[in-house]
């Protein structure tokens, strides 16, 4: 394997900020509040915290250990555990790569909306504006319509931003995250403060926080809580493995994992106040229940929020702040996914960083053009469902299975504890051996069964085959081929060394 330029974090704070930035994304603002409302308000928050401590934090510690103690990007770390596991590392970063191809398109939407905010271009009908003017949405997934030039321009800008953010790996990221992590937090606090001063804001907050304890007895709430934890922490994409590989040898992994996981959860929790306060206000204006105006995902950000912004004082400023927050929330997640992939490519093929960055970005950009067509939203929705529900849970399951059952878990725990102030007990072994694999396989199987019974989103079966199963099959086949390459590269390196 050729020598590659390995960079380290400039400080512990830089690593923590980068990992928090990776974990915090659009989901903290547009998914968590909705799921919370849907599954019992405050009861869901409690279920979420329990899931975080039982599965999320142990899995995060596991990924840090793989990257820092075992060493290397996801493919290399798994190859070092055993030659036959290298493909799992590749599967993780390939899933992350496919996600970035459409995540950058969502960022392009937000970038366009940032510009629209100055003149409130969405007017009095944000729904038609979003679907017809911005997306040029067609009537079906088979009808691609035309490529939306403004989205392609936005996409190019987003990819330039992503590549520049990781240009020299951890060295550049160490500087960038001081801005991209703190800016969205400052804006979030501003939006929460402003939101809470609106009339009827507390009616919205009541919807958010009032616990319906009976929900805790339903398996769906636990399924949703574990899913949200998996989604939110950026585990299962090889990102945290790559980031931890840039840490110096004596780092406290347990403490880092606690700060990062809790900060991510705290952001989602505070994000709920930003969303529900304005929904309470909007519901009051409309004279309806908060439930009637509650939305999630792109609909919340690009239709409901602009509609609400129309009624707020200093509307253009609120719009600019809101979409700038979305952009800065998303950029860290996007470049961390790319960095995880780039690190794997560099360590396997010995390629130079600059060229690898550009090559990966160019391929991802070209794939991303599909999502800028008139059928882009449909494909994005479909691919997202398959990549997150199947890719993420499958990788989470495989990771815990490998470490829990095919390696000496106790030895890994001792390695983690060697430099940690707060030592993790044997409960971690139980979590990694049983809890994480069981939780992820249950989530995976329930998703598969759900899809078999009813096609996701009502899309035709052929579209599911292409955008779902075919893409997953490509990811698995590529992972197996590239895994062999990583093993070869490690052999060459050890024979040279």
């Amino acid at each position: 394997m050729a020598q590659t330029e390995k960079a380290y974090w400039s400080s512990r704070t830089a690593f923590i900020l980068a990992s928090i930035g990776s974990a915090i994304g659009l989901g903290n603002v547009w998914r968590f509040p909705y799921i919370c409302y849907k599954y019992g308000g405050g009861a869901f928050i409690i279920a979420y915290l329990v899931s975080l401590f039982l599965a999320g934090i142990p899995l995060l510690i596991l990924e840090f250990a793989l990257g820092q103690r075992i060493g290397g990007s996801a493919p290399v770390a798994f190859a070092k555990l055993s030659k036959k596991f290298a493909w799992i590392g590749w599967l993780a970063i390939l899933v992350g790569f496919f996600i970035t191809t459409y995540y950058a398109v969502i960022m392009s939407w937000a970038a366009n909306y940032l510009v629209y905010s100055f003149k409130l271009s969405w007017g009095s009908d944000p729904k038609s504006f979003f679907f017809d003017k911005v997306l040029g949405l067609t009537d079906s997934i088979a009808n691609f319509g035309s490529i939306q030039t403004h989205l392609v321009i936005g996409l190019i800008i987003m990819w330039v931003w992503i590549v520049l953010s990781i240009w020299k790996g951890a060295k550049t990221v160490s500087k960038v995250v001081y801005f991209t992590v703190t800016i969205p937090w400052l804006i979030l606090i501003t939006l929460v403060t402003g939101g809470l001063t609106l009339p009827n804001a507390f009616e919205g907050i009541k919807y958010y926080l009032t616990p319906k304890w009976s929900m805790l007895l339903k398996p769906q709430i636990w399924q949703a809580a574990f899913t949200q934890v998996f989604f939110s922490l950026s585990v299962g994409f090889g990102v945290m493995i790559a980031y931890a590989s840039f840490l110096p040898p004596k780092s406290d992994l347990v403490n880092n994992a606690m700060i990062i996981a809790l900060s991510d959860a705290a952001t989602a929790y505070v994000g709920g106040f930003a969303v529900f306060s304005v929904l309470g206000y909007y519901a009051g204006l409309q004279g309806v229940e908060v439930a009637k105006v509650m939305k999630s995902g792109p609909e919340l950000a690009f239709i409901t929020y602009p509609e609400i912004i129309n009624h707020l004082p200093l509307a253009p400023l609120v719009g600019v702040l809101f979409f700038l927050m979305l952009l800065t929330l998303a950029i860290d997640s996007a470049f961390s996914l790319v960095e995880g992939f780039v690190a794997g490519v560099m360590e396997t093929f010995g390629t130079r960083r600059g060229r690898t960055n550009i090559f990966v970005a160019a391929v991802a950009f070209l794939i991303g053009i599909i999502y800028t067509t008139g059928a882009g939203l449909y494909w994005l929705d479909l691919v997202d469902h398959y990549m997150t529900f199947f890719g993420l849970f499958a990788v989470g399951f495989l990771e815990a299975l490998v470490v829990g059952w095919f390696t000496d878990t106790e030895k890994i725990r001792e390695m983690i504890n060697a430099h940690s102030i707060v030592k993790i007990g044997k409960w971690w072994n139980v979590a990694v051996k049983f809890l994480v694999p069981i939780a992820s396989i249950v989530l995976l199987l329930s998703s598969v069964i759900g899809i078999i019974i009813k096609p996701y989103g009502g899309y035709p079966r052929w579209a599911e085959l292409v955008g779902g199963w075919l893409l997953l099959a490509i990811a698995v086949i590529l992972a197996i081929i590239l895994g062999k390459q990583t093993v070869k590269a490690l052999k060459v390196k050890s024979s040279e060394g």
């Binding site: 512990r12 308000g41 405050g42 928050i45 409690i46 915290l49 907050i205 009541k206 958010y208 926080l209 009032t210 616990p211 304890w213 406290d252 403490n255 606690m258 700060i259 809790l262 900060s263 959860a265 705290a266 929790y269 102030i421 707060v422």
Partner: peptide, 30 residues
């Protein structure tokens, strides 16, 4: 009390922000 939104507010705030502050204090002591 247990069915009040304030209950969730106190529990979640203490666990999340208390946990972050505690973890940072521990890290600084090292």
């Amino acid at each position: 009390m247990f069915t009040s939104p304030w209950f969730t507010f106190v529990i979640a705030s203490v666990v999340l922000f208390g946990g972050i502050i505690w973890s940072i204090i521990i890290a600084k002591r090292k």
